[in-house]
Design a protein around this nucleic acid. Structure first.
Length: 868
RNA sequence: GGGCGCGUAGCUCAGUGGGAGAGCGCUCGCUUCACACGCGAGAGGUCGCUGGUUCGAAACCAGCCGCGCCCACCA
């Protein structure tokens, strides 16, 4: 655009329209390649963040939008300040979620994955990914996220997949990964085992049945309680507490399992709570995690009567085989009633594990799965936090929660019975019952030359996610990317995946690269719906970030999210987004004022002429330091609000108003240069928060200039600090407000000028502005003060009001009375405080002194008020 | 069962030992030559309750009441 066109646009546009400019600005950034750093140098010189990879099935939600805003702020800040900055981008194959999506599609077509077979099914998933997998990345662009879009990764990419298998094989070789028949959380919906972390507890009302197990000796029975009578078919013992007098003599005896007739030994185990129920516990090692542990301790038989399909197995006996577990429950209860073995029932509310994914009730069963022992891997991950090399922000409570989890870590079930994912690099020789674990298929069995069969299972998606910060950069090869950007710096996340993801990245990062994958973990708010419920599509409580961008602009949404989010969970506040939109508009209009009034050829430069020039330069210098400090401490929300306040209140409400007379005069070169400089600094400081509007305005500033996205913040400059100017202008601000309030109180019309005498210290440089901003004609105070009709207190003294027909005498008197009352209250307070010997004695001298001065001020003002 | 967090203006939230803050909403006054998505002025709060520490507490400690989250194998 030519200068004339720019000018025309500025003159015409009194409102900033984000929708019109955002796409063009994003295109400019991409064309200039500012998001893609070359893989040069070392990680110590660069700055990098690995994005929490969104699911390929995902659409951008508020959590993404918030975390995206936070990460982009940090990336842009560091990029501007000259660090080679890379926001590592990619998506996650999301095994379960994606498989469900494609299976739903198949169901609509009247087919199923079983019908297609594994190979065709996998192809379909890839096709699905080609078509829809890029959606969320396009949405990140709308937010202005400056990810390295030229270098996108996917957890199922060939290179990434190789890294995943490499890790599995290595962990197996080191003895961490093993296969075992073990109690797992079986999700009957997914027909897969899931890890402990994918299980959530839900309160359920069940019936607690009391069942009598007759003693083999015939002398009575033991009553046990259960909410799952169908599992009795797999009972292999009855347990009591070793110190329980009621049962002591029965330990080692046998009971007969009703319906089945199996002899069950009565065993003693500390686990049993004598106070609960009858103090006797039926033991079902095949279908209860506790019983499983007890069974292993006592060497009990493990019987499975419920299969992976959720139906009763042959082991349940002819009467029950083939029934669903629910059907079997009713049938077992009915059969027990017939035998008279049920001695009681009562409603029972308790927490029951459910699958986080399918929502189905977990069926604990014994299954052959692959596990990873985490104990050794956890140790250095604990040490890293204890020694302060890895820091959570805020430290409390996340540090302790992380440590508690790692210190009590349990084996991780890493195999999943799915088709979409990294298939286990495990081969079996059925004839010799041998197992081979290796990157490539070993071909045929070394011993018997039989054909090998690859394990059907895939790895838990979180297993591959655990390599994200380094596998995305080409690990295990020593690529330039790895050297340039690993370790990364920051990992920004919500609380909910600290165990699932963050801790595992730390463990795998240390184990495989010898380094922490990142050093700082800011943990951000969870955004709730405005009514306090969870934001969720199914509840209808979700707010689509793209709708908000459409309505208010990406900058507005970013500002709003950054401003509303702190450490605490927070309800979504549409007003904060609106505030962001208005800030963008304010920036635009303040820029119009400066750019349209500044004469051609003036370049931005601090060129102070007056006290207010020196004040704003000093103020900005201080603000810049405060904001940098807040950024360093990851207090991004406070930094954002601080930026707002400095720009709106100080720059716009005060400085621009103070500068206007000179700006609109003929001799405006110097003030224009200062104004342009002030504008430049504001745009620079605000760019990481609101990149679009600041970049847009930047392009209107005079002179040849690079993109704002690559322009550094100004270095700290002590020479700009000016306490004298700060004091003078703060005093002026106080006086202006006091006089305006007085005008309002006494009903003086805005158009009317009032006359007064300035009887106050510290206005040598600002008296003119004071009169102008308050529409007072001020003359210096003389010896003759007799005709003053009122005294208006201002910092450092007062303004004596001269008689005027334009003020309402009744209002003036009412005001005087109100002020007198307020002063008397304050004086009483101050006097009381100073009368307290202990205060005078123990409080710091400056606090006491300040109190004395305060009291004196109030007394003086009251005296003058009474003297009128 | 264990752990953690929260309770501040009508609403959403900052504030962590020396005179209670922001945005929105509300009241009054302004179409003042950047912006009415604006400008100026203002009202509104026993900082959940009760004790304690301190010269001084919204902040620190203890207890209680209310709300929420995480972890956990009492059938």
């Amino acid at each position: 655009m030519s200068q004339d066109e720019l000018r025309k646009r500025l003159e015409e546009r009194t409102r900033y329209e984000p929708g019109e400019v955002e796409p063009g600005i994003f295109a400019r950034w991409e064309a200039a390649g500012v998001f893609h750093p070359e893989p040069e140098g070392t990680a110590a010189e660069s700055f990098s963040i690995a994005i929490p990879p969104p699911n390929v099935t995902g659409a951008l939600h508020m959590g993404h939008a918030l975390n995206g805003s936070l990460q982009d702020l940090l990336i842009r800040l560091n990029r501007m300040n000259g660090r080679r900055s890379k926001w590592i981008l990619g998506t996650d194959h999301a095994g379960i979620a994606t498989q469900i999506k494609v299976e739903q599609q198949l169901a609509e077509e009247g087919t199923s994955r079983q019908e297609l077979g594994r190979e065709r099914f996998t192809e379909r998933v890839w096709e699905w990914r080609e078509r829809y997998g890029g959606t969320i990345l396009e949405q990140y662009k709308r937010l202005g996220a400056s990810c390295d879009y030229e270098d996108e990764r996917f957890t199922m990419d060939e290179r990434y997949a190789k890294a995943v298998l490499h890790v599995f094989v290595e962990l197996h070789r080191k003895g961490f990964i093993y296969q075992d028949d073990y109690m797992v959380n079986w999700d009957p919906g997914m027909r897969s085992a899931i890890s402990d972390l994918e299980v959530e507890q839900r309160s359920v009302e069940d019936t607690l049945y009391s069942i009598d197990y007759p003693l083999e000796s015939g002398s009575g029975s033991i009553t046990v309680a259960t909410v799952r009578p169908e599992t009795m078919l797999a009972d292999t013992a009855v347990a009591v507490h070793p110190d329980d007098e009621r049962y002591r003599l029965l330990i080692g005896e046998h009971v007969i399992l009703p319906l089945v007739g199996r002899r069950l030994r009565v065993i003693a185990d500390e686990y049993v709570d004598p106070a609960f129920g009858t103090g006797a516990l039926k033991i079902t090692p095949g279908h209860d995690p506790n019983d499983f542990e007890i069974g292993r301790r006592h060497g009990l038989e493990e019987i499975s009567v419920i299969g992976e399909d959720g139906r009763m197995t042959a082991a349940a006996g002819d009467r029950f085989e083939g029934m669903t577990a629910d059907e079997a429950r009713n049938a077992v209860v009915a059969a027990l009633r017939e035998e008279g073995a049920i001695s009681g029932t009562k409603p029972y509310v308790h927490d029951v594990p459910h699958s986080h994914r399918s929502g189905r009730r977990i069926e604990p069963l014994i299954s052959r799965q692959w596990f990873c022992d985490m104990t050794e891997l956890a140790k250095p991950a604990i040490a890293a936090v204890r020694e302060g090399r890895l820091r959570f922000h805020p430290e409390v409570p996340h540090t302790q929660v992380y440590l508690d989890w790692l210190e009590n870590i349990r084996p991780w079930c890493v195999s999943r019975q799915l088709w979409w994912g990294h298939r286990l690099p495990v081969w079996y020789c059925d004839p010799c019952e041998e197992t081979f674990v290796s990157m490539e298929s070993p071909g045929r069995c070394g011993s018997c030359d039989a054909e090998l069969r690859q394990d059907e299972d895939v790895l838990d998606t979180w297993f591959s996610s655990a390599l994200w910060p380094f596998a995305t950069l080409g690990w295990p090869e020593e690529t330039p990317e790895l050297r340039a950007f690993y370790p990364t710096n920051v990992l920004s996340t919500a609380r909910d995946i600290i165990f699932l993801w963050v801790a595992r990245m730390v463990m795998f990062g240390i184990e495989f690269t010898g380094e922490l994958p990142f050093t700082d973990v800011p943990v951000h708010s969870t955004i709730q719906a405005p009514d306090g419920r969870r934001m969720s599509k199914s509840l209808g409580t979700g707010i689509d970030p793209l709708d908000e961008i459409e309505a208010h602009g990406a900058d507005a949404l970013r500002f709003g999210l950054l401003a509303m989010a702190s450490d605490q969970d927070v309800r979504y506040s549409p007003q904060r987004v609106k505030q962001g939109q208005e800030l963008a508009n304010k920036l635009w209009n303040a820029s119009r004022l400066v750019l349209l009034a500044a004469p051609a050829g003036v370049e931005p430069a601090p060129s102070p002429e007056t006290v207010e020039d020196r004040w704003i330069l000093s103020e900005l210098e201080r603000a810049s330091r405060r904001i940098s400090e807040l950024y360093d401490g990851f207090a991004l929300s406070r930094a954002t609000l601080e930026l707002y306040a400095v720009f709106w209140d100080e720059v716009c409400d005060w400085y621009l108003e103070l500068a206007k007379p000179r700006l609109y005069s003929d001799d405006n070169a110097a003030v224009s240069a200062t104004l342009l400089h002030v504008l430049e600094r504001c745009l620079t400081m605000l760019h990481p928060v609101m990149p679009f509007v600041t970049e847009e305005i930047w392009s209107y500033l005079p002179g040849e200039r690079d993109l704002l996205a690559t322009t550094p913040w100004a270095a700290p400059d002590d020479a700009l600090l000016d306490p004298g100017a700060e004091q003078a202008v703060e005093r002026l601000k106080g006086a202006v407000t006091a006089l305006r309030r007085y005008r309002d109180d006494v009903g003086a019309k805005p158009s009317v000028r009032l006359a007064g005498r300035l009887a106050a210290e510290g206005y040598d440089d600002t008296a003119g502005q004071l009169g102008r901003l308050t529409r007072f004609d001020l003359e210096p105070a003389g010896a003759e003060n007799g005709d003053a009709v009122a005294l208006i207190a201002i910092p450092g003294g007062a303004v004596q009001l001269l008689p005027s027909d334009d003020i309402d005498p009744a209002e003036a008197e009412r005001r005087r009375e109100a002020r007198r009352g307020a002063l008397e209250t304050e004086i009483q307070r101050a006097e009381g405080k100073l009368a307290n010997e202990r205060f005078v004695e123990r409080a710091p001298a400056e606090v006491v002194q300040a109190e004395r001065e305060k009291l004196q001020r109030f007394r003086d003002e009251l005296d003058e008020l009474k003297g009128q």
